[in-house]
């Protein structure tokens, strides 16, 4: 969920509710200047919160207090590259669990190991993000390095319903991944069943919640959390 979306109060309401309704991990997005791999919906949420939220870190602190499930921060390395250590230290001091930089293995592939070590050296978990354009050899090489799970973003961008065959994409990598595999990026309800059947261990949902909040408010978004939890539970 985008940090502070749609406003501070409703953001807290949503994440607390989501935890109660069965979200296992909360991924919180800090708006970057250039959300390279995010689609129109998340971009819009970023632009809304950048106008409304005055103090991101204070809000994040509050979120930490309200949640018991792990919090993983999602933002772009490009944005924080210059003050990376400060940023990571700040997160650690707030007892954030880990970070996920979707651009790490794409735009920083030549020295991803250095960044990986830096994340770990601050005592944070490093959640790695791969896409279908990451070659098999690299997926095999990095999958077990990822903490908590390996994130597999199956569309080129979030929230644009590009037609893909999610199950085919999951099947391609499933045997290469020695870790829990979490699939995300624009998944529909049908996609969720399909990827779980194809071997995914979990799903990441963002755009769908933001759209619900935008159109119908937090309660509807929480209904969606409940519904999706139900789908996952069909398989457990």
């Amino acid at each position: 969920m985008t940090l502070g979306y749609p406003d501070e109060e409703n953001f807290i309401k949503f994440i607390k509710g989501a935890e109660m309704l069965g979200s296992d991990i909360m991924e919180i997005g800090i708006p970057p200047k250039y959300a390279k791999y995010d689609g129109p919906v998340i971009r819009k949420s970023y632009s809304i919160v950048s106008k409304r939220v005055k103090d991101y870190l204070a809000l994040l602190k509050l979120a930490r207090k309200e949640l018991t499930i792990p919090i993983v921060i999602l933002t772009y390395l490009e944005e924080f590259e210059k003050n990376l250590d400060e940023f990571l230290e700040e997160l650690k001091s707030m007892e954030i669990d880990g970070v996920l930089f979707p651009d790490l293995l794409i735009d920083y592939i030549d020295n991803y190991e250095d960044y990986y070590k830096r994340i770990k050296s601050h005592g944070l978990k490093a959640v790695l993000f791969v896409t279908p354009t990451v070659p098999d050899s690299i997926i095999s090489k990095v999958s077990h390095l990822s903490d908590i799970f390996l994130y597999y973003g199956v569309r080129p961008t979030t929230g644009v319903p590009i037609p893909i065959v999610p199950s085919a994409l999951v099947r391609r990598v499933r045997d290469l991944v020695r870790n829990k595999l979490v699939v995300g990026f624009g998944l529909s309800t049908d996609d969720i069943r399909e990827v779980i059947l194809a071997g995914a261990d979990g799903v990441a949902i963002g755009t769908a919640y933001i759209e619900k909040i935008e159109k119908e408010g937090v309660s509807s978004a929480l209904e969606l959390v409940r519904g999706l939890r139900g789908i996952l539970d069909e398989f457990s």
């Binding site: 390279k36 794409i106 070659p135 098999d136 080129p156 961008t157």
Partner: peptide
């Protein structure tokens, strides 16, 4: 899938 490095996706 057989490239030596990840192919940067369209943006």
């Amino acid at each position: 899938p057989d490239l030596p490095k990840p192919l940067p996706p369209p943006r």
